Computed example of a mutant assay.
Amino acid sequence: MDIDYALSALAAQATGVRETADVFWEIQPGVVAMRRDIHARYGGRRQGGIGPSRTTPNVLIFVNPERGRAHGYFDGWGDDGCFHYTGEGQLGDQQMTQGNLAILRHREQGRTLRLFRAVQEGVEYLGPFEVDPDRPWYTSEAPETGGGPLRTVIMFRLRPEGPVQPFDAPLPATPTAAGRVTSIPVEASNTEQYGMIGPEEPTTAFRREAALVQSYAEHLRSLGHEVCRKQIVPPNEMRPLFTDLYDATAGELIEAKGTSTREAIRMGIGQLLDYQRFIDPSPRLVLLVDSKPRPDLLHLCSTVDVSVVWKAGNDWQRNASLRLP
């Protein structure tokens, strides 16, 4: 390593000044190169998405919004002007260690974050970034690699530190302190199931739920009711929640389940209670199922003030909830 560079890098780490990073950076935003050539010049790990360099004051960050979803990485631009970047770690809850810690501490270590995007010809340099000083990161949920179980992931809020190469990669929703609730059409096919991102066909349960929702929505409309769905973005969360139905005329929030098993009933109750917190005025809760549940499960729903509706021939039957004192 050149002695002048070494002294400059040490001075930058000691003082928190990162001007030296730009002195040794020669690539302009929009330039495409092979990743191996980038590492040969600027250092950093050649595998994975985060490459802290030991030879230059940079942390190289690589994104592939299209392929990354298969590994639980949902990166993109938010409405807040930040690029939201998923930390490293494909299995289990992500931890603030190694590459993630390098991103978080890049200022105190005198490093600049350099963001690259995978393209057909190699990687495209997007520009210099820094973690947002006010809110550098938050946590969200995403599946493990290959569509595995949900786990906690670290989401960094990266703010451009100079000119950047524009590219289209919006987040589905930007976390805000207040949260948001909006009405969307019943026909919207949004789902909370992160695992359904590939070409797989919907499961039988999902098909049953979709048929139940459409049939009951048509029934309510025949009665002159106004129906929709609710998209809910909880405070400081990126992942939106989607209700199955909302009967605006009756003030009822409806969750559908394609089976009447105990597991499905318990899951539906939990979802209804979760959604109810965000809707004002507070709606009555209804669980929509394909057949009449067993007596014990009907009693369970009644004790938490959830009505149950099911199809019986051409008619809809309802088990009224038990209003608790």
Rank of each mutant, 00 (worst) to 15 (best):
V59I: 14
D244I: 03
R284A: 07
Q317W: 12
P234G: 06
V304E: 14
G48R: 04
N319R: 06
R117C: 13
G49K: 03
G179W: 09
F167C: 08
P133K: 05
A14V: 08
I61S: 14
G44N: 10
E192Y: 11
F129V: 06
R105A: 14
G146Y: 08
E124S: 12
R117S: 06
G313I: 14
T97S: 10
N190E: 10
F74Y: 08
R35A: 14
L171I: 06
D296P: 01
V309I: 07
P175I: 09
P172D: 09
L104A: 07
T249W: 13
A9P: 11
L322M: 15
F74V: 06
Q47D: 01
S189M: 12
G30V: 04
T182S: 01
I3L: 05
L245D: 03
V17H: 04
F206T: 07
A102N: 09
C301I: 10
I232M: 03
T182N: 06
L113Q: 04
Q98H: 09
E88R: 11
L220M: 02
A14Q: 10
M155Y: 14
L241K: 15
L245T: 01
T112W: 12
S302P: 15
R111F: 01
D22P: 08
Q276F: 02
G72Q: 00
D22S: 09
G224M: 01
W137C: 12
L287Y: 01
H106L: 14
G99K: 02
N190W: 14
T243Y: 00
T97D: 06
T204D: 12
D37T: 07
L297K: 03
K292E: 15
G270M: 02
R229S: 08
A70R: 10
P170Y: 08
L298K: 09
V286K: 01
I61R: 06
R117D: 15
T191C: 10
T191F: 05
G258Y: 04
A14L: 14
R157V: 02
A178R: 15
G44E: 04
Q193A: 08
G87H: 00
P172N: 13
A248Y: 00
S291N: 11
F167G: 05
A264Q: 03
G148C: 11
T243E: 01
S183T: 12
C82V: 14
I269R: 01
Q193S: 10
P295K: 00
A188H: 04
E187Q: 05
P166A: 12
R45I: 07
N190V: 15
E209C: 15
P160W: 13
E124W: 04
V123F: 12
Y194K: 05
W316C: 13
E108A: 06
L223D: 05
L104K: 09
R262V: 05
Q231A: 11
A14C: 08
E26K: 11
P57D: 07
R105N: 04
E88C: 03
R107Q: 06
G72C: 14
D280H: 13
V227D: 11
R207S: 10
L171Q: 02
G224T: 05
G51N: 03
F167L: 05
L245G: 02
G78K: 00
M96Y: 00
I27A: 00
P295A: 09
Y5L: 15
L285T: 04
